[in-house]
Each structure stands twice: as C-alpha cells, then as structure tokens.
Simulated assay, not measured.
Amino acid sequence: MIRLKKIATLVVLILISFACVQAQDVNALIAKVKFNIDKVNDYEATARMITNVSFLKVPDADVKVYFKKPNQLKIKNEKGISFVPKGAVSINLNNILSGGKYTAIDAGTDKIGNTTVRIVKLLPEDDNADVVLSTVYIDEAALVIRRAKTTTRTNGSYQLEMNYGKYSAFGLPDKIVFTFDTKDYKLPKGVTFDFDDGTQNNRSAADKAKSKNGKAEITFSSYVVNKGVAEDVFK
C-alpha cells in the first residue's frame, strides 16, 4: 500500500514537472516571436484594401498604413474613407503581445494549410482588461503568428490570418485578412456609405448586420521600417 502511494506521488510530480516544462517552452516561444516584432519601432506601408461587408458598398482602396510604438496605428485612404472596425488596432500584433501581462497556456498543435502551428492561449492578468482572451497560432519554424483570434468586452471578436514574405524577419505580413462580426460595428459619427438594398423591404443595416461576418483584406506592396513617423499622422 505504501509503495502504491509512493508511485502515485511520483506520477503526480512527473505530471507537474511536465506541465511546468510546457509552460516554460510556450513562454520561450512567445518571447522569440515578440523579439522579431519588437524590432519594428515604426513603419509606413503601401497597401491595397478590399472590404467585404454584406450591407455596405465599400470600394476597393489604395491605402497607407502607419504604425508607431507602442500601439499607434492608422489606415488612410487618400480618396475617401476606409471601412475599418473600431477594434482594428488588433491587426497590430505588438498590441496583442505587448507588456507580457498574461498567462500563456499551451493548447497543442494544428495546421494552417501545410504549415504546422503551435496554439497558445493568452489570458490577461488584468481582470478589467478589454481583451478577454487571445489565441495565437505560431509558426515555430518562421517564428511568426499565422493566425490570431481575439475576444474583447467592448469591440466583439476578431480574427486575423497572416501570410508572410520578405518582411517576415520583422514579423510583418505581406497580407492580412481581418474578419469581424458586423453586429459589433458602429459607423463613425458623420460617416455614411451606400447601403445594399437588394433585399425585400430594404431592411435596415442593423438588421442585416446580425450574425454576419465582415472581412477586410490588406495586401502590402512595400514597407518603410524604422525611418520615423510623425505624430501628426495619427491625429
């Protein structure tokens, strides 16, 4: 009986040690990914933005994307207004990982296309933080985030899909697909768009938005990294 208790105790200790090693491994992986992202102090990027929202007619647009640490992000359309949800700051991966004030949980592996990714759930330590949960899918070979899902208290849920190319060493994607729930989006004050009236009785935008997903695709053609971005850009 005593021997069985010793064996059971040993098994528990092994399991606890294994869990600790996993946690350390996940935190080390995130630190490596963040190291690449932290190389970028600011950037100005040229991109093409395609927006797909069922109840709005939003033209494709050539845009400039500006970023400056720690979390300033601006998307400018020279010929009009780009439709970007309030939570679009989430497309800044630095914002998801900034501060390290979260508990990282290893959630196993998955595949995105032909790439095996490590799934890590990030739980904020601050109970009052707007972000409730972030789940990141990390390409361990390239040390980049291929997908990120974020749930917030005030801005709904968002998902990012990233494709990488020549700027992957900085953790900067060639393309971002940003998916969001349109029922959580409110048009900025004074902004109007053409509404699609192809449904019976021309239902309101609010009705059409229910349980619908919106999508914004941003394809980057070039980045200018760490050359400085003026504060006036973000006003």
Rank of each mutant, 00 (worst) to 15 (best):
residue 135 T to N: 01
residue 137 Y to S: 05
residue 143 L to H: 14
residue 118 R to A: 02
residue 129 A to T: 08
residue 141 A to G: 02
residue 140 E to M: 06
residue 150 T to D: 01
residue 132 V to Q: 13
residue 114 N to Y: 07
residue 144 V to S: 08
residue 121 K to N: 12
residue 139 D to N: 07
residue 148 A to T: 15
residue 152 T to I: 00
residue 153 R to V: 00
residue 116 T to V: 00
residue 130 D to E: 13
residue 135 T to E: 13
residue 119 I to P: 01
residue 160 L to D: 10
residue 141 A to D: 12
residue 154 T to A: 11
residue 109 T to S: 02
residue 125 E to W: 03
residue 156 G to V: 10
residue 134 S to D: 11
residue 122 L to H: 04
residue 108 G to Y: 06
residue 142 A to H: 08
residue 137 Y to Q: 01
residue 143 L to V: 02
residue 149 K to G: 07
residue 154 T to V: 13
residue 131 V to P: 05
residue 144 V to K: 02
residue 117 V to P: 06
residue 125 E to I: 13
residue 120 V to E: 04
residue 112 I to Y: 05
residue 141 A to T: 14
residue 124 P to G: 11
residue 112 I to G: 05
residue 116 T to E: 13
residue 136 V to F: 02
residue 132 V to N: 09
residue 155 N to A: 10
residue 128 N to E: 15
residue 162 M to K: 08
residue 163 N to H: 06
residue 143 L to D: 09
residue 156 G to M: 10
residue 111 K to M: 14
residue 145 I to R: 12
residue 160 L to R: 11
residue 130 D to P: 12
residue 163 N to C: 05
residue 165 G to T: 14
residue 133 L to K: 15
residue 161 E to A: 10
residue 159 Q to H: 04
residue 159 Q to R: 06
residue 122 L to I: 02
residue 118 R to G: 02
residue 136 V to C: 04
residue 126 D to S: 14
residue 146 R to W: 00
residue 134 S to M: 11
residue 137 Y to K: 03
residue 162 M to P: 04
residue 142 A to G: 05
residue 134 S to K: 14
residue 144 V to Y: 03
residue 126 D to I: 10
residue 111 K to G: 07
residue 137 Y to L: 06
residue 133 L to R: 15
residue 122 L to F: 07
residue 152 T to W: 01
residue 135 T to A: 09
residue 122 L to N: 03
residue 151 T to P: 00
residue 132 V to G: 06
residue 141 A to I: 03
residue 110 D to C: 02
residue 125 E to N: 13
residue 136 V to Y: 05
residue 146 R to M: 11
residue 155 N to I: 03
residue 113 G to N: 01
residue 161 E to K: 07
residue 165 G to P: 04
residue 118 R to E: 09
residue 151 T to I: 15
residue 109 T to C: 00
residue 128 N to Y: 10
residue 118 R to H: 03
residue 116 T to F: 02
residue 134 S to L: 12
residue 139 D to F: 02
residue 146 R to V: 03
residue 131 V to F: 13
residue 124 P to C: 08
residue 147 R to Q: 15
residue 121 K to L: 15
residue 148 A to Y: 13
residue 142 A to R: 12
residue 149 K to S: 07
residue 135 T to L: 11
residue 131 V to E: 13
residue 140 E to C: 02
residue 137 Y to A: 04
residue 140 E to H: 04
residue 161 E to Q: 12
residue 137 Y to V: 05
residue 137 Y to M: 03
residue 165 G to H: 09
residue 114 N to D: 10
residue 123 L to I: 09
residue 110 D to E: 08
residue 115 T to C: 05
residue 135 T to D: 03
residue 159 Q to C: 09
residue 160 L to Q: 13
residue 142 A to D: 08
residue 147 R to M: 11
residue 121 K to R: 12
residue 110 D to K: 14
